[in-house]
């Protein structure tokens, strides 16, 4: 095997490595997101790194206000009857989720860079 071949192999491996990094490795940029879903469909993905307050309308005039502050997300207002979502503590770890059953609404933390403290489900 000649030197040129080695360079070629290494070059191709570098390209493959780059592709691998882009497509296979989990996204590690940005410090996480709060994924808002209504009826199981993703409505919006909010970056946890940017403070924000947004209102989401669900069926029958229902609404939930989602607030992102200091890397944590919470539901700060809602017109559901049980108020379970609005009472829930702010969440910031992968897999943590706030549910509003009456509105079929969830906001879930995903893709945070730090896997520590992340969960697959909550009981």
């Amino acid at each position: 095997m000649k030197k040129g071949d080695l360079v070629l192999i290494l070059g191709l491996l570098a390209v493959i490595g780059a592709l691998f990094a882009v497509f296979w490795l989990p996204k590690k940029s940005g410090g996480g997101a709060a994924v808002v879903r209504i009826d199981g469909e993703t409505v919006e993905t909010l970056a946890l790194g940017t403070d924000a307050e947004k209102r989401y309308e669900s069926a029958d005039g229902g609404y939930n206000v989602v607030t992102v502050k200091d890397g944590r997300v919470s539901v700060t207002a809602a017109n559901c009857r049980d108020r379970i979502c609005a009472r829930h503590r702010p969440v910031s770890k992968n897999g943590e989720c706030i549910v509003c059953l009456p509105h079929c609404f969830t906001v879930t933390v995903e893709q945070t860079a730090a896997p520590e403290g992340g969960v697959d489900a909550v009981a």
């Binding site: 403290g117 697959d120 909550v122 009981a123």
Partner: peptide
């Protein structure tokens, strides 16, 4: 709705991680 059942190994290996919710709404973590 929080009634969790887990089996097998998660992709990537190891164990599944199941959080226990904090009953205290003022708490800042699971």
């Amino acid at each position: 709705g929080g009634n969790v059942i887990a089996w097998g190994a998660p992709p990537g290996g190891g164990l599944w991680r199941v959080g226990v919710e904090n009953p205290d709404p003022a708490a800042d973590q699971l």
